[in-house]
Every structure is written in C-alpha cells, then in structure tokens.
Design a protein around this nucleic acid. Structure first.
Lengths: 303, 303
DNA sequence: GGGCTGCACATTATCGACAAAGAACACAAA
DNA sequence: TTTGTGTTCTTTGTCGATAATGTGCAGCCC
C-alpha cells in the first residue's frame, strides 16, 4: 500500500461537520481552503459523500441530504499520518518503558513493531536525530542517547540563551506589531484558565506553547524558532506521561507567565529579563524534579 | 543496484597503500581497525587482492607479491558515498548557479539529474533541512529559502551566542584537559602556515574548522556542538567557490586566531571575550562582503 | 471577466526486494 | 587463554513500483 489515505480521511471527517441539511456545500476551491487540502482530495470527498447518500452533487450544486451520523466518520486512528504514529510509538518507548541510554535502535525491528515499512521508520529517525536524543552510526545501527539529566540540562541551557535573546527582541517590536495583540489575547486566556484552575489546569500546555512560540518569533531567527520544536516535543511527551503535581506546577507557571507578560508589556528590558529568568529557572527545576529516578541513575552511568 | 560498494572501494584503495612487498598483511581484525571497516569488508578486499595477484592468502599468511600500480586503485569518484555526491551537487546548485529563493525543489528531478534513486535524495533533503536553507511542504514540494543575507545574519547571530558561551567554558577547563594540548598544537600549526602564508593560505579553512570545533567542544553541549556543523558546511562550500581576496582574508584571520588562542591561554574571561568578539565580527564582515550582489538583491525581494 | 468544473498529468509517500556491509558464534591456532 | 579464521545470519542503503495527493490547463457558467 503505497500511501495511507489519511489526508483524505481526516479531511472527510472535518468536512462532515460542515454539512447543514437543506443547504449546499461551497465551491470546490473554497472547500480546499476550509479543509487545507487539494482539489483532488476535495473531489474524492464529495464523491464519497454522494455514495454515502449524504449529498446530491451536480456541478455547482452540492445539496446536503441528511445530517451525518457517527458511523459516517472514519475512526480517529485512521486519520493519523504514519509519521505521527511512528513518533508517538517511538517517544513512548524512549521516554517511558526501560530504554537505557546506549541502547541500539534497529530500523527493521522498529518497523515490524509498528507495522510499517522500513523507509518510513528510517526517515523518521533521520528527522528525529536533530533532537539530539539519538545518533547514527553509518552502515550500522542508531544509538539511543536517552532522555537523561545531562540531555535536559543541555536543552535548557540553550533554551535560556534563546529565550532571553527573543524576549529582548520582543520588547523592541513596533507598537503596531500584531504580536502585541496576540500577547493580550494570550494574557486573557491565561486569566481565564487561572480562574478555573482546578478543572482546567491541563490547558496550560497549550498556553505555554503559544506564549513561548510567540516570543521566539520575535527573534526573527529561524534557528531560534526551529529550536523551540525540540523543547516543545520533549515537554509535550514528557509531561503527557508524567502528570504528578501537574495541578500545582501548572498553577505556579501560569502566574509566572502572567508576570512575564506584564513585564513584556512594560517594554522595560530589565523587567523582562528578570521575569524571563525567573520563569525559566522555575521551569528548569520542574523538569529536573520530574525526571524519574530511573532516568537519573541511568544518566550517571551513561558514558 | 541496492547499495554502492563505496565503502569497499575506498577501503581497498587505502589498503593498497599498506602493501609492502615481501611482508605479510596483519590479521583481519587488525586490518579492520586500520581501515575502519568490518571484517566482512576486509575479507572482500583480501579476496580481491588475491584475484589481482597482489597477495597470496592462506589462513594467517597474506604475503604481498607485488607493489600496487596506479591501475590497481579504484577511481576516486567511485569511492564517494552517495550522500556526499548528492550534497556536493546540491550545494553547487544553491550556492552557485542561479537558485532563487522561493524556488521549488523537486525530488524526482533532482534524483534524475544526479542519477540516483528518489529515496536517497529524499533522505538527503530531510537531513539537510536542519540547516534552514530549505523547507518541506508536506505532500508537496520543498521550498528553497536560499543562501541570502538574511540567512547569513541569522546563522552568525546564533554562532556568536554559542561561541561566546563555549569560549567562556573553555577558560574553565581544568589544566590537565587534553584540549590545552590540542590548543597549543593548533597554535603552532597557525604559526607554521603564517610563516609561508603566500603558498599555504588555503590551509586556513582546516585550521579554522579545528579551532572552532575545539572551542565548541568545551561547552559540553550537543546542541552547540551540532550547530557548528551548519556553520562548517556553509563556510566550506561558500569559500570553496568564492576565493576572491582569500589571501588577505585568511592572513588576517590567522592573526586573529593567534590573538584568540593567546587570550584563551591567559584564561582571563574578559580577554577571551574581547578576542572572540573581535574575530567573530571580522568573520561576519568577510562573509557579508563575499555574498554576491545577486544574492543580496534576492534577499531583499524574498518575502 | 472572474471564478468554477472536468480532466490529464506530475509528484510525493510508502512499500517490498536485494546487494553491500556489519555482527555473532563456533572452532582452530598460537 | 587469547587471538585469528570460517561461516552464517542480520541489518542497512538503495532502487523501482504504485496509490494518494497535488497542480495546471481548457472550457464553461454566471
């Protein structure tokens, strides 16, 4: 099977939600924009909807016949691209179950375990190698360097350098830069979540990602912006499987974010630097503390 | 053809130079170490040498029969791995001949042009994408972002951050760290080249690479060390095809390096920082000036 | 004239296949 | 007991093939 039709299935599912009985779907190019796919895919979706009796399709008219029911949707797991599946499986293996630093990674074995071809696994590993968690030995295996304390420290050191630089650049943004509007929107979102922190503390991850990305953008430096991908993926998976103290940790972090945002709004470089440093060292502490004892022990042994 | 046997050919060529008539080659495992390949490959080499009448091989004895002649060597171009070939061709295209920023990159076309399969090109592009010169549009083409003035500035900004950090760490290295010995060796190498600068100025590139890598190592941070790969590849190819003023440029840089090395040896942080900044801003200037007018014009238009 | 559809074509993502290269193991030699 | 060899098996690097997806052009409808 050459290509998974996950793009089609995912777009189909999203298109189902656009159906309103009695009305007609918009034009093909407009659907392309709404769904973010090409016209070919849109037309496949329309054909499929005709077969499912959801719409009547004749040239420009795409009259909705009935509302979609649950059975019309493709199961969610079929809508994930291969790369996503591989990434999740792999991260699970190296961040959770006993993946010792120094371990060898076998393309073939991984491919069989996940049930995909070797090429896909191989390409994933190449892409993933820029995160510094694995290393290639040409003509031989990959070596797992592991999510160790050492790794976390190196990551955070660079993060601090970059974030301080970006925050300093943010302050110099012209007053009419859209980033200021987004910053205010983010501030409100923080306040909202904080008001109902006990039930919404899990939304912090998303806020965190948005705030830091917004700040890195200000650096106007692709290497700084790209580096944030590493931080994001590590934090994302790590905290996804490591929810101890999440309630307190996130509550505290939201307060820090609010300080940080206020500081940015003053545009005073020293205030920004102080708030930034304070938040980052707190984040560093959280991450270090949440590293499991197993990971810690492994770190000391590695190399 | 599944795999190029470039490993074999390259090792074979290197093994030819070990032949001394009348003597016997060392044991298989020892040859593995000398050539940096596996025993399987060593045995292939030995077999081939028997066929070529170069040696008699019987168990442990591998008696050399005749000295190798020129025709025994594989042509050099057959010893380059595919990845190297692709990299060179690609860099040539984007750093030299009219590759406008924003241009689309086509895997199939590139593969045909170079005469390799699409998989190899694809994997190269994925690996290469971390250098920030190209960007992937999933399910669609790659976009060339181009070696523009903007790119150079972003690259050098990060370089300065990292180098300052590394240099500061270098100063704190214990007195018995091997880096100090290597530093002294490098200093002498600089002096040697400088003494005969008019005929040896092209050797500067190698010295530059060695010195900066040595310093980055001191950071003990994989992200900083890995980032130097980007700088190295860009400088390598750029100056390889851009030798205007190389004589003056390199002569001046060697003097700066010597200052820098002296500063490191004093272990005084402020002296190191000054020398580091001075050298880096000079390197920045050189790079900027050597960017062709075409690249400059393109920069302004892009986005 | 500007946007929409129909159609033909180009390109990507993924797979399985296979030779090159590496790795493991039992035995032989020193 | 250590080191080297013979042998077999595993894994990587590369290719071509193929369905999914994207793109371009000619004509049609408002």
């Amino acid at each position: 099977m050459p290509k998974q039709n996950t793009v089609f299935k995912d777009a189909y599912n999203r298109c189902l939600q656009l159906l309103v009985v009695g009305e007609s779907l918009p034009s093909e190019p407009e659907l392309c924009n709404l769904l973010g796919v090409s016209r070919t895919t849109v037309r496949s979706i329309l054909s499929q909807m005709v077969e499912a009796g959801l719409i009547e399709w004749n040239k420009r008219s795409k009259a909705v016949q009935r509302p979609p029911v649950k059975a019309d949707f493709f199961p969610e797991h079929e809508t994930n691209s291969l790369a996503e599946v591989i990434e999740r499986t792999f991260m699970k293996r190296i961040l959770m179950g006993g993946a010792e630093p120094g371990m060898q990674i076998n393309e073939l074995e991984l491919a069989r375990e996940i049930g995909v071809g070797t090429t896909s696994v191989r390409e994933f590993l190449i892409r993933f190698s820029r995160f510094g968690l694995i290393e290639k030995r040409p003509n031989s295996h990959w070596v797992l360097k592991g999510f160790t304390r050492q790794f976390a420290e190196e990551l955070i050191d660079v993060r601090e350098m970059f974030e301080l630089k970006s925050a300093a650049a943010f302050v110099k943004l012209p007053a009419d830069d859209p980033a200021w509007i987004e910053l205010e929107a983010l501030r409100r979102a923080h306040v909202d979540v904080l008001a109902d922190i006990d039930s919404r503390y899990l939304e912090f991850s998303e806020l965190d990602d948005r705030l830091h990305r917004l700040i890195q953008q200000a650096s106007n430096n692709r290497f700084i912006v790209d580096f944030y991908d590493i931080i994001a993926i590590v934090f994302h998976y790590h905290y996804q499987w490591n929810k101890s103290n999440a309630r307190e940790r996130n509550g505290k972090a939201i307060l820090e974010h609010l300080d940080y945002i206020e500081a940015l709004k003053t545009r005073r470089p020293d205030a920004v630097e102080a708030a930034c440093r304070s938040h980052l060292s707190s984040a560093r502490l959280s991450l270090m503390q949440s590293l499991s004892p197993a990971a810690l022990a492994a770190t000391d042994e590695a190399q």
